[in-house]
């Protein structure tokens, strides 16, 4: 199998490192593979190269050796699978590489939430070209929710899904719950610890969770677009609100909710004994079904090797179902 990796930042390098470190085990399960091209905004490498050398080169020089663009690599190289792990952009530019691959009949495995921009269009494109688009890593990191919905629960009616899809928000809310400190103080500490980004607005305003909810909603057959999601973030939550909520047996979490009746991301009262009252940077989801009752999943929502693990899981699934 010939693999092209587009995007060679944290996640891309994580995937490459796992492919090197676990090569024997991976090949036993999916057969021989070769990474035939890697490209990101800094440069590219293709042809006959060793994966470990590419990782080393990128680490030492901060870029890949060639100036040939990712666009050219995606269009011109010959590969069976594209691992697309570039950063999310909320316009069509975020999905161009994927479209290029799918049009050639190559399958795509992605962690890029940009698929929310045109989920249905990408799925149609994949189907028309006899390819697959796998996206487990886009929602909840390594929490296995997409495969759970698409495969294990394929014959259930999914009444709705509620999830904690943003680890940064959950971390801030957990500390507000435990220490009753103001939002702004916890946010600045979270930035120092690298849990929140320098510009955290996409996280704390609920936008990141909203994009993931679009992907989840489409997965359960609700053709939602980002504009359809009602979004309220966590910036106005106060420590007093936690005190009041906890007197009544609740905590507060940012919950993304998708059902036929509701598409929203908002702070919600969650019973203290609910599994959704999960703490720290964890992601979690509760799926309501017609015949299987409620199903709960949780896992790490971000991280280099966590996300890379979700990508490899898709790679295995792709081979297994072909």
């Amino acid at each position: 199998m010939k693999i092209a990796i587009i995007g060679f930042g944290t996640v891309g390098q994580g995937v490459a490192e796992l492919l090197v470190a676990k090569r024997a085990e991976i090949e036993r399960k999916i057969g021989d593979f070769r990474v035939v091209a890697i490209a990101d905004l800094t440069g590219s490498i293709w042809g006959d190269f060793k994966l470990e050398d590419a990782i080393e080169y990128r680490r030492k020089k901060g870029r890949l050796p060639s100036d040939r663009s990712a666009k050219e690599i995606a269009e011109e190289e010959d590969y069976d699978v594209m691992i697309e792990v570039t950063t999310t952009r909320l316009d069509e530019s975020g999905i161009e590489y994927m479209k290029t691959a799918l049009k050639k009949g190559a399958s795509v495995i992605t962690s890029n939430k940009s698929i929310a921009v045109d989920f249905q269009g990408l799925m149609r494109l994949a189907e028309n070209n006899n390819a697959k688009l796998m996206y487990e890593a886009t929602v909840g990191g390594v929490m296995p929710i997409i495969r759970l919905l698409n495969s294990y629960l394929a014959l259930c009616e999914i009444i709705g899904v509620r999830g904690i899809l943003n680890g940064t928000c959950n971390y801030i809310l957990t500390r507000m719950e435990e220490e009753k400190l103001p939002y702004s103080q916890i946010l600045s500490e979270a930035k120092e610890m690298g849990i929140a980004e320098a510009n955290p607005s996409a996280d704390v305003e609920g936008i990141d969770a909203g994009i993931k909810l679009v992907i989840l909603a489409n997965t359960i057959g609700i053709p939602a677009k980002f504009e359809d999601i009602e979004i309220v973030g966590i910036t106005k939550i106060t420590p007093q609100a936690f005190t009041v909520a906890m007197q009544k047996g609740y905590t507060i979490r940012l919950i993304a909710e998708a059902s036929k009746k509701s598409l929203r991301v908002s702070p919600r009262l969650v019973p203290l004994n609910s599994p959704l009252a999960i703490k720290g940077t964890m992601n979690a989801a509760m799926i309501k079904t017609d015949t299987a009752g409620d199903i709960f999943v949780a896992g790490r929502g971000a991280g280099k090797f966590e996300t890379a693990t979700a990508i490899l899981s898709d790679l295995y699934e792709l081979v297994r179902t072909n």
Partner: peptide, 11 residues
């Protein structure tokens, strides 16, 4: 004003 609703059984 931010409204914080409970999560109920129904979605």
């Amino acid at each position: 004003i931010v409204v914080v609703e409970p999560i109920n059984d129904e979605i």
